[in-house]
């Protein structure tokens, strides 16, 4: 049986129309505010400056900062990331007037092959950082948990070093991330480089 409802619907009042419109607008505004807040949170940066080394930079807020090591002068790690913690670090090495960026790259490769498991250089090329000519080294290695009491698989890590010699010292800017997500994470490093002054 088919029932027809012949009674016509009541037209919306002016107030109801405004209310509907207001609700939609409010929802859109709230969504916009939320997206803006999210962008602010995820894109928030912290400033860092080391006058002794001569660097000034911004880094993603919420990354764990460490400046107390003999191996590097600055290191940040994304500790909220599961698996290998995406890392950006800056280290400084003394050089002579005859040392070239390529020499530094070769030294790094020689020392890393002794300490990093299955370390391999993927390629070495030239590039620029702003207007500064730099040596760019891409490499890979297997990262393992250091605790002997835990059971972890190795993680394939991809790394990128940017090497330049400035003011009589080699500056090595390194970016390391899980190989599977290296390209996804790389924009963070690009942003970091854009803000870097040395």
């Amino acid at each position: 049986m088919i029932l027809n409802n012949p009674s016509p619907g009541r037209p919306l009042t002016q107030t109801q129309r405004w209310s509907t419109l207001f609700t939609i607008i409010l929802a859109l505004v709230m969504l916009g505010i939320g997206l803006n807040m999210r962008a602010q949170i995820t894109g928030a940066v912290a400033a860092y400056e080391d006058t002794r080394i001569g660097i000034r930079l911004n880094y993603p807020e919420g990354w764990l900062l460490d400046t107390n090591s003999s191996d590097y002068v600055f290191r940040i790690r994304d500790m909220t990331r599961a698996g290998f913690k995406t890392t950006i670090q800056i280290s400084v090495r003394p050089v002579s007037s005859a040392t070239t960026e390529r020499n530094v790259a070769d030294q790094l490769a020689r020392s890393r092959v002794l300490t990093l498991q299955d370390y391999r250089v993927l390629n070495i090329g030239m590039g620029t950082l702003g207007e500064i000519p730099v040596e760019i080294v891409r490499y890979t290695y297997n990262d393992q948990s250091t605790s002997p009491f835990l059971q972890s698989f190795s993680t394939v890590v991809e790394g990128l070093d940017i090497l330049t010699i400035q003011r009589g010292q080699a500056i090595i800017i390194s970016f390391r991330a899980e190989a599977d997500s290296f390209d996804d994470e790389y924009p963070i490093f690009e942003t970091f480089l854009n803000d870097l002054e040395f």
């Binding site: 764990l64 500790m79 605790s147």
Partner: peptide, 23 residues
């Protein structure tokens, strides 16, 4: 805590089964 490593007493990462150990 402002995410500086010198504010930490220790840091541990979980293994493949989620276990961690503070060293």
């Amino acid at each position: 805590f402002v995410w500086e490593e010198n504010q930490l007493y220790a840091l541990a990462i979980t293994d493949r089964e989620g276990y961690f150990e503070v060293d």
